[in-house]
């Protein structure tokens, strides 16, 4: 459709100043993100992988628009970034205000953004979309399991009808037996709403499962960016090679049933 990408990230650098260690010491700076170029189109799904401290989460914060980059530019070509870019975090317990009911949590973005929507219909739609019972509306986050809390967080992110969904380690804090539910949900919602997805994860199998393209970050830089398939078969950067070799692989799997 449009020729220019939805997100255009060019030469973005972000530094943070560390607190002074002594009155006489100079404040040290760390470069969290360094000279990053990225494009994201509608319905793209991009995975960000790398070690902790590689700058993945900082990059997400920049895309969300919480703070400006120190250098370079992030251009969002949609209409209204605050409405159209939403985020889901790793730990749903920290991501949901314990003093608010599910209904309040999910509808809060509509209120803040002053979107004119029939609130109760929208609430039911959202709860249905993420597979929560409608009776959940009047309950508080602590009454739910980790997986359900993540569903609440996803419902909130969907409320303002976003075009881009940012997800920061969305299943890492969940039980293994619950992860597949949330991964399937993200997969389905992405297809259903045509969302562009930026997924940060340290788990390459999760990224591989959900993303068409992967950007490998190392010490603040994007060292390699490729289509998922070719990244796994023909990695070019030494760090990517190390990362791929380091993934613990399941040596045995049950053969698929019914047999193929």
């Amino acid at each position: 459709m449009s020729s220019s990408p939805l997100f255009e990230v060019r030469g973005v650098t972000k530094r943070y100043r560390l607190p002074r260690t002594s009155v006489f010491a100079r404040r040290r700076e760390i470069v969290a993100v360094s000279r990053v170029d990225l494009d994201l189109n509608d319905s793209d799904s991009l995975g960000l992988v790398g070690d902790s401290g590689a700058g993945k989460s900082t990059l997400l914060r920049l895309l969300l628009g919480l703070e400006p980059p120190d250098e370079g530019s992030i251009r969002y070509q949609g209409e209204w970034r605050r409405r159209e870019v939403q985020i889901v975090f790793q730990d749903p317990t920290r991501a949901l205000d314990p003093r608010m009911t599910v209904a309040e949590i999910v509808l809060e973005p509509l209120r803040v953004l002053r979107l004119r929507e029939p609130m109760s219909t929208r609430l039911s739609e959202l709860l249905d979309a993420v597979g929560l019972p409608r009776a959940a509306a009047d309950r508080y986050p602590h009454e739910f399991s980790g997986g359900q809390r993540q569903r609440i967080a996803i419902a909130r992110a969907l409320a303002p009808r976003p075009r881009v969904l940012l997800a920061d380690e969305p299943v890492s804090a969940l039980d293994v037996s619950v992860r597949a539910q949330i991964l399937n949900l993200l997969h389905d919602l992405r297809d259903l709403y045509g969302l562009a997805l930026v997924l940060v994860s340290h788990d390459l199998s999760v990224v591989r499962h959900l993303c068409d393209r992967i950007a490998v970050m190392h010490r603040g830089e994007v060292v390699e960016q490729q289509q998922t398939q070719s990244l796994f078969t023909a990695p070019t950067h030494p760090y990517t090679v190390r990362l791929l070799e380091a993934i613990p692989r399941l040596r045995w799997r049950p053969s698929p049933r019914p047999s193929e």
Binding site: G65, L66, I87, D97
Partner: peptide, 21 residues
């Protein structure tokens, strides 16, 4: 907490953050 980050993401101002969260 991340819910504050989320709320700031869609533009909740200081007053709203204070009263609401």
């Amino acid at each position: 907490q991340d819910y504050v980050t989320v709320a700031r993401g869609w533009g909740s101002g200081p007053l709203r953050l204070m009263v609401r969260h």
